[in-house]
Design a protein around this nucleic acid. Structure first.
Length: 199
DNA sequence: AATTTGCCCAACCGCAGACTC
DNA sequence: GGAGTCTGCGGTTGGGCAAAT
């Protein structure tokens, strides 16, 4: 990353990569005061950073239980399915992947999965063209494309059916492998929803 | 060995909604 | 109720690095 000094344009504000020393100071202050009031955290820690930057660093790197390393096949599958359901609502998607951050998932999507999607669509188009456009609706669903509006409708739909708020707001700390399994079961329901609504 | 290219990912930016006074 | 501030989100940027040339 960029040396901290090279991106410092505004007076008295550090930009760019965080140093180990800054991380340590930030973690210490958050341990005492908790992860809120980011502006005052930055001041208390004696960091020349804006509150926003401190929050981001904490959320994406310093927070406990952050899972680093490769995204597993199971996680990738879940991301694909949740994206189909919710669109680019990365924070919601991240909320269902224990230890993963919205930034990480967004990056993973942009660098890996968006390419896969394009490939899938290309293949799907070829198949469709050669089969007299039979079963177009089913192919569209399989190509993992869904209009955002439909995703919202779908969200509303299950919010009505059960406690959707609770579903989406679970903290990642209470997640585990079993939860992923349960999530996959839930996602099977959205397939049924498409069928039911003839999408 | 040097240079170029493409990918990855940490960090920044702008905006909208929530919160506080 | 309104203004100002804070927080959270999604989009974008750009440096580092490995692979390709």
């Amino acid at each position: 990353m960029v040396p901290v000094s090279s991106r410092s344009s505004k007076k008295d504000v550090n930009r760019g990569s965080w140093t180990a020393e800054e991380d340590q100071k930030l973690a210490q202050v958050i341990e005492i005061h908790g992860p809120r009031r980011w502006k005052s955290i930055a001041t208390k820690a004696g960091l020349k950073r804006c509150g926003k930057s401190c929050r981001l660093r904490w959320m994406n790197y310093l927070r406990p239980n952050i899972k680093r390393g490769n995204i597993s096949d199971q996680e990738e599958d879940l991301i694909l399915r949740l994206h189909k359901l919710l669109g680019n609502r990365w924070s919601l998607i991240a909320g269902r992947l224990p230890g993963r951050t919205d930034n990480e998932i967004k990056n993973y999507w942009n660098s890996h999965l968006s390419k896969k999607m394009k490939q899938n669509r290309a293949v799907s188009k070829t198949v469709q063209g050669s089969t007299e456009q039979k079963n177009i609706k089913a192919n569209d669903v399989n190509a993992l494309t869904i209009e955002r509006e439909d995703a919202f409708k779908l969200e509303e739909n299950f919010n009505f059916g059960f406690n959707g708020g609770q579903f989406f707001n679970c903290s990642s700390s209470e997640q585990g492998p079993l939860n992923l399994e349960w999530m996959n079961k839930f996602l099977e329901m959205d397939e049924s929803w498409f069928t039911l609504h003839d999408i």
